[in-house]
């Protein structure tokens, strides 16, 4: 790893999380290999997209980072400090530096709490602020997310989906975290409201130099609002790099298929209706070798035998036998960034 003065805001190394499958009976215990060796780095002020289809493990990664799940192995560091779980003071402090915005603004806010109370809660728990200071901070937060000051006295049901998502963002910002994890923050919203929330998040990122881990299935959103992107398939990152390169010149056939399945609002693209075969297999019994090979139009004999190693590029990389690494000992787990 290169020597650097400032540690990245988030570093994830070789993260693994398996879920046991209930029932089962005799025989070897089965597990859903939700994430299987995931590594990436988010810099300060950067918006980093983690994309993939449902079941690829992207939300599990998010939940491990914010401490809602405990990974089986791997390392998560935030500003150079290892993220510990549990109730230690240090763990609490680190979790305070990572906040989350959820997909569903209808279930992620407490319906019985006035917005002002919801926003004041993290400030009160963190301590160190007087009641007047907390009130002032709540008003500031509402202003930052574009809500009127009288919103503090109202309850979640009085707000539309887009406004609720603004409240969720205000709550995430309350403790001025350096990193926000947003799990599909706009996929429950209508197009006209989606753009409002995306522009708000982007403005806050720039203004506060926030790191933003943006979990999404929507490649168009990621292309427009992220600087880097990692593409996940069945628990593994298959490609990573700057968004322009990954979308303009995808190296992994899955990235290409995903891009071409995302239809632009343009009738000229209608002939592109993708012809990718099959569906994502179960993560309980993923295909041998490269997980994508049964659906891959460019599969080779080796693809069903051996999992592809990580091939680093000047910036980013890919795990695909079409692009073998110059040095086969490099894996996603030990590659440097």
């Amino acid at each position: 790893m290169k020597a650097r003065l400032v540690p990245p805001i988030l570093e994830v190394r070789d993260l693994r999380k398996f879920f046991p499958v209930p029932g089962g009976g005799f025989g070897p215990r089965q597990a859903v290999r939700a994430i299987d060796g995931v590594s990436f780095t988010v810099e300060r002020g950067q918006s980093y997209g983690l994309v993939g289809e449902s079941g690829c493990g992207k939300s599990t990664v998010a939940r491990c980072i914010v401490g809602l799940l405990t990974p089986d192995s791997g390392r998560i560091t935030v500003e150079g400090e290892a993220l510990t779980t549990g109730r230690s003071a240090r763990g609490r402090r680190l979790h305070r530096s990572v906040q989350m915005v959820f997909q569903d603004p209808f279930s992620s806010l407490n319906p019985r709490l006035a917005i002002g109370t919801t926003l004041a809660e993290p400030l009160a728990i963190a301590g160190g602020l007087s009641r007047a200071q907390i009130r002032a901070r709540v008003a500031e937060l509402l202003r930052e997310v574009g809500l009127p000051e009288n919103a503090a006295a109202k309850f979640p049901h009085e707000f539309s989906g887009g406004q609720r998502q603004r409240i969720s963002i205000a709550r995430a910002l309350a403790l001025r975290p350096p990193l926000i994890v947003a799990d599909e923050p706009v996929s429950a919203l209508d197009v006209s409201v989606q753009a409002q929330i995306l522009l708000l998040l982007d403005g806050l990122r720039i203004e506060h130099d926030l790191g933003l881990l943006f979990i999404s299935h929507d490649l168009a959103v990621v292309r427009n609002f992220c600087q880097r992107v990692a593409v996940m398939y069945l628990g593994r990152i298959v490609e990573e790099g700057p968004v322009e390169r990954v979308f303009a010149d995808p190296k992994h056939p899955y990235t290409l298929a995903l891009r071409d399945s995302s239809l632009p609002p343009d009738p000229a693209a209608r002939d592109r209706l993708a012809r990718i075969e099959g569906e994502m297999p179960s993560a309980i019994d993923p295909p041998k070798g490269c997980h994508f090979h049964p659906r891959c139009p460019r599969r080779m004999p080796i693809c069903s035998v051996e999992a592809p190693a990580w091939t680093p590029f000047a910036d980013g990389g890919v795990a695909c036998h079409l692009h073998p690494p110059p040095d086969a000992t490099v894996t996603p787990a030990n590659r440097g960034t």
Partner: peptide
């Protein structure tokens, strides 16, 4: 104008308010 495109990134323009 509010719909992001995967093929060519453009500056999005949000529509204020809600339906």
């Amino acid at each position: 104008a509010a719909t992001p495109r995967v093929d060519r990134p453009e500056k999005l323009a949000a529509i204020g308010g809600a339906v």
